[in-house]
Each structure stands twice: as structure tokens, then as C-alpha cells.
């Protein structure tokens, strides 16, 4: 698939001047430059609630900081509200999942702690996407987890490099 993938980007960080927002902006820009249609939802400080369905999209990109190993509360709230009935199999008999058109599920996430610490914690956010959300996507949908560690201990150059490499990695997913 080159160009023209309909992509939904959902972001959750309460501060618009945050590094996470900069990662989001560069990723969205790179996807648009590659010819894709991008829709963005900023869950930010909880005033936005996110989409109710993603029927019109082929790719979902989650951009978020990882706090306590998990997703920020407002993003977890969106997943539990929109996907809860499918994941917990309540009231969904015969209904397609809200992610049934999604062929690529990707996350771009930042961690304050090291990769080792996150492995010891068991990466609960990654497991939620991979084990509970990916099975709701289209058959043979892809899953990518693009992650940065030790956010507060990296140099400015490392941080800038990640913004570029993460955006390039997400664009590469759309090229199959």
C-alpha cells in the first residue's frame, strides 16, 4: 500500500509542549507527506473523548507516554469505553469489532525508565495492544511497538533522532 491509507492517530498527553506531542506532530506530518489521509484525536487533558468507531480507517497509531507501565488514564478510558464490549465480550454477539477494518496497529511510546525495567514490569501497555486489541483488528493485521526508553536521561540529539526514526518507522509500516 503506497499512499492513501486512511490513518487514525490517537494521542494522550496533557501538555501540548511535551516531547510526546512533538513525536506525534512529526509522525502525523510524515504520514501526510507520504500521501496518507490522517485524522488526529488529542485526548490530552481529558476534555476530548476520542472516536466511537474507526470504520473509516485502515491504520491506528497510538502515541503516548508510558506511566507505571501502562497507558495514560485518558487513553485507557477510551479503550475501555470503545473496545470494552468487544474485549470483555459483553453485548457484542454478531457485531463486528470497532477495529475490524484496521490492518496496521502501531504505537509510538516513550518511557522514563529503561528497557530492562519495563521488561521486568511485564510491559502491560504493550500487552494490552498486542493481546487484546490486535485480535480485534482485520485478519493478519500487523503490530508495531516503536519505543523510546530513559526519556529524561537522553541528550537533545538522541531525542531529535528518535522523533525522526519513529516517524520513518511508522511510514515504513504503510509501505508494507
Amino acid at each position: 500500500m503506497v499512499g492513501d491509507v486512511r490513518i487514525f492517530v490517537i494521542h494522550a498527553h496533557p501538555v501540548e509542549e511535551s516531547y510526546s506531542a512533538a513525536v506525534r506532530d512529526r509522525t502525523v506530518q510524515a504520514l501526510m507527506e507520504a500521501g496518507h489521509e490522517v485524522e488526529l484525536s488529542r485526548l490530552g487533558d481529558g476534555s476530548e473523548h476520542g472516536p466511537d468507531d474507526l470504520d473509516d480507517y485502515q491504520m491506528l497509531v497510538v502515541v503516548a507516554p508510558i506511566w507505571w507501565g501502562g497507558l495514560p488514564a485518558q487513553l485507557l478510558a477510551w479503550i475501555q469505553r470503545v473496545l470494552g464490549p468487544s474485549i470483555d465480550r459483553t453485548e457484542t454477539a454478531g457485531q463486528p469489532s470497532p477495529l475490524s477494518t484496521i490492518q496496521h496497529l502501531a504505537a509510538v511510546v516513550t518511557h522514563g525508565s529503561s528497557r530492562l525495567i519495563n521488561q521486568l514490569e511485564g510491559e502491560p501497555a504493550r500487552q494490552l495492544l498486542k493481546r487484546s486489541m490486535l485480535p480485534l483488528c482485520a485478519d493478519e493485521a500487523t503490530f508495531d511497538w516503536v519505543s523510546l526508553y530513559k526519556l529524561d536521561r537522553l541528550s537533545r540529539i538522541d531525542l531529535e533522532n528518535f522523533i525522526e526514526s519513529a516517524a520513518a518507522e511508522v511510514v515504513a509500516i504503510t509501505n508494507g
Binding site: 507505571w68 485518558q74 485507557l76 470494552g84 494490552l128
Partner: peptide, 15 residues
């Protein structure tokens, strides 16, 4: 347990 996670409100308490 909701979606194999704590409810978002509890995650907000942690955050």
C-alpha cells in the same frame, strides 16, 4: 478488571 486492566479511574489515581 476491565479489558484485563484496572478501570481508567484507578489508573488516573496512579498517574
Amino acid at each position: 478488571t476491565v479489558c484485563f486492566n484496572p478501570p481508567a479511574r484507578l489508573k488516573a489515581w496512579m498517574d
